[in-house]
């Protein structure tokens, strides 16, 4: 997996520049923790990296292709009428990915059978977040782009997330993650990027 190089990136929202002349790089096996106060451009940065938003200038090389990257935004992309299991299967089918055992992926994020099969609209905020994170486990994509993944997670959830991160970078993947709080667990390959300071 090649190193991701971001060079002199400028991103604006409306007529406000939110990311100004940003350069950094991430390699396989690394976790980049993007910090910054509200409005510092964390979300916009991830949206550019996942291809949802177009930068004003600068370049990203190589821009990860859609089958190599997994972006999870503020919203969980769970249809409230369908269960967590059905949602998981839908996204796998849409992206042409085969999941051998979707229940195992949900169990890995701590959703038991009863929670996985009831309409996801009835789940708690933390459970919904876990259901979204289950997609990361089910689809093995090397790049994880996670926007505030810790929002709504309880203590066990944080531990679980730390485990997921460690396993992913241990297996040669890379993560770019934004959050206000320090990341749980101890990762040797953790680097931070403070957007407020830049």
């Amino acid at each position: 997996m090649p190193r991701l190089e971001v060079h002199q990136l400028v991103v604006s929202r409306g007529d406000r520049i939110v990311v100004n002349d940003l350069s950094f790089s991430v390699a396989a096996g690394e976790v980049l923790h993007v910090l910054g106060r509200n409005g510092a451009g964390k979300t916009s940065l991830l949206e550019v990296l996942c291809g949802l938003r177009r930068p004003d200038s600068g370049h990203i090389a190589p821009q990860p292709e859609s089958r190599e990257r997994h972006w999870i935004g503020h919203k969980n992309a769970l249809n409230p009428v369908l269960s967590a299991l059905e949602n998981l299967e839908f996204w796998a089918a849409l992206n042409g990915e085969r999941i051998d055992d979707p229940r195992a992926a949900l169990a890995a994020v701590g959703l038991q059978k009863a929670q996985a099969t009831r309409p996801s609209g009835q789940l708690s905020t933390g459970q919904k977040r876990r259901a979204a994170l289950a997609r990361l486990v089910a689809a093995a994509r090397p790049w994880w782009l996670l926007d505030e993944p810790l929002a709504g997670l309880d203590v066990q959830g944080l531990d679980l997330f730390a485990g997921l991160l460690a396993a992913h970078v241990g297996g040669g993947g890379a993560v770019i993650v934004t959050s206000h709080q320090p990341l749980p667990g101890a990762l040797a390959t953790l680097r931070s990027l403070n957007l407020s300071a830049a």
């Binding site: 949802l52 859609s66 972006w71 935004g73 919203k75 042409g96």
Partner: peptide, 17 residues
């Protein structure tokens, strides 16, 4: 509307299809 509200629409936008 529903896909916009729950974030599914954005995932569809960046899908490979």
């Amino acid at each position: 509307r529903a896909d916009l509200d729950d974030g599914s629409l954005e995932q569809m936008l960046i899908a490979e299809v």
